[in-house]
Design a binder for these strands. Structure first.
Lengths: 350, 350
DNA sequence: TTGAAAGCGCTAACAC
DNA sequence: GTGTTAGCGCTTTCAA
């Protein structure tokens, strides 16, 4: 059986046509409609008929076509999700919380990653919207104008997560990146540090990183401390490599730095490695703090002080909120802000 | 990408009906069919008509319904992919190679994770197949009988990756986990080590880990060495925590161990941390090797010797192979095996 | 270059 | 409890 016209040779037919409900119905001696009912829960079909149908379906290796079902019922069962990167333990945790929370509902996550680029996000959101998801979850609250318009006009719940945007599109489930960072500064100041550096990354791309830096600056200023010891990598987001390189720059320029706050645990780990290679003892010679509560920080030697923003919890809450919105329980936008927690570990303990 | 879950439930409709091709056609004064043509490349529509249509589409904020389009053309544009875990840098690299390689083709990845569980894989594969993907990529070559049957009867290209199964369903893009591990053993033996331990995880769940252990045992035996210094964590896959715990057990039981081979870099990192906490110097007192070439290993102090299996390359090759299969260039199954490379670093250098 | 008719596989709505 | 009819939004096919 060919699926492709003769003049279009791409995608030659490898498939044999899969069985349909009509095929199953014919074999079971019932109408396709009865098959449709039998294959769904909570539908009235006699036990005998259902058994006949299940036998026939099994015999044919029949699997329902979810696309066709969604098409007919106008419910695709998709929830679109964008994250900045797939290779990031924090977003992976959020994703796990989200998918696990959606598991019972029959909703499926359609995932895309933006590579920390709002232009890419725009393309991605458009592509995802073409699949007619029932809700869309975007990481971050910073979008191109067109992307914003797409989200606003999509006619479905829009959830912005991992952020606290001043002007949200719809519903927000996040936290204040600036506020979280301020907590770390309070901790470092309480430890008696005054010469505190910051390692970040290109702020136009990593918007959450920018907010963290803002929180850092503001918190230092509240204590009357200067905040000029800052190194940004040109690459965003910064990771271990940039952490190591930026730590080198920071220490070369301000050798008397007492503590370094890093935009993420990965940067902190790279920075700490570099300190150790330079013969600096952490925390005796210099304190290091990260952000994100990656496993890495717990098992590093010394273990790294960090911020736990509740990545998994964000995902779980997002799932619940999506379900609430779709079931009409909470038809209105809301703003749910979680409270990040400092986890003090060896790398900054006196 | 798509994540998949089970069951069904009712959702209230929040959506206003999005514009259709008919709406666009009406506004532009043409038939829906002409709109369909205008919105696709390589179709014959006059420039003037196309402009009218694009203007109308823009005005209505029209986005094509990919599900309906796929339904009508019997080409969903989905490529189903299963990976064991979303929170794993190796699989993330493969996924990135895969999605990037598919980007130009208009094919979209539908993703699900199995949590290293073949029963979960079976459910997932079934769920994914219901979306009628044009090809399916599964990580690993170990499946339940029913899952195997599902894959075989799907009528689409099936690609098993990250493995070298003895009896593949269809096409294989992987490497020998056992062979890769043997390379590490050769390296350690060449360094003069004879008392070599292994840290792994529950072998029924982590099949690739099992193969790695097999390769370890065989390689030791080739050198006439004993391979009893082995600790498996009950948790699979092992990560940093288990690496630390299992290293403790190994060192308590065989304090004179000279080198430890770990099932992954994460385990190696946990083990190395534990060694350091016990006052052992790496590599002077004990050598440590990992598997997977995670960033972590490069920036750890000391940097960790590991195996680079070419995770990104597996993804890129998989994408290319999927395209070849779908375009009929390479209609037959093939077996593509990449060659893992040892990266010798400080943790095992003499 | 454009349009009309048919239908993809399924479900909603209404019969019986 | 089961069948019939209609149609979801689009593309295929054929005709003009």
């Amino acid at each position: 059986m060919l699926f492709v016209s003769d003049n279009n040779q791409e995608f030659a037919a490898l498939k044999t046509r899969p069985a349909t409900m009509a095929d199953v119905g014919k074999l079971a001696g019932v109408s396709p409609m009865t098959v449709s009912r039998a294959l769904r829960p909570d539908t009235s079909v006699s036990t005998k008929t259902r058994e006949k149908i299940e036998k026939a379906a099994k015999e044919l290796g029949y699997l329902i076509d979810s696309n066709a079902a969604g098409f007919a019922s106008r419910r695709t069962g998709f929830v679109a999700v964008t994250i900045p990167s797939i290779n990031n333990a924090n977003f992976a945790d959020t994703l796990r919380g989200l998918t696990d929370g959606l598991k019972q509902s029959g909703l499926q996550v359609l995932l895309g990653y933006t590579n920390y680029d709002v232009a890419e996000e725009e393309r991605l959101v458009e592509q995802l919207l073409k699949r007619r998801p029932e809700a869309i979850v975007v990481t971050g609250g910073n979008h191109t104008p067109h992307c914003r318009a797409l989200l606003q006009n999509a006619g479905i719940p829009v959830l912005e997560i991992w952020d606290d945007p001043a002007d949200p599109v719809d519903t927000v489930i996040g936290f204040s990146n600036a506020g979280a960072c301020a907590l770390i500064v309070e901790h470092l100041v309480a430890q008696g540090h005054t010469r505190i550096g910051f390692l970040g990354s290109d702020e136009t791309r990593d918007r959450r990183g920018k907010d963290r830096h803002l929180g850092f600056v503001e918190a230092l200023e509240r204590h009357g401390l200067v905040s000029d010891r800052t190194i940004f990598s040109a690459i965003a987001p910064s990771s271990m490599r940039e952490g190591a390189a930026c730590a080198t720059q920071l220490l070369d320029r301000w050798p008397d730095t007492q503590a370094i706050m890093c935009v993420s645990d990965l940067v902190a780990f790279g920075a700490m490695s570099q300190c150790q290679r330079r013969g600096l003892k952490v925390p005796q010679d210099i304190a290091i703090c990260g952000f994100g509560a990656y496993d890495l920080s717990e098992f590093a030697v010394p273990a790294i002080t960090t911020i736990d923003v509740g990545a998994g919890q964000i995902g779980a809450t997002t799932a619940q909120t999506v379900l609430d919105r779709l079931m009409g329980n909470t038809p209105n936008p809301s703003r749910i802000l979680l409270t990040p927690k400092v986890i003090v570990r060896e790398s900054s303990a006196s």
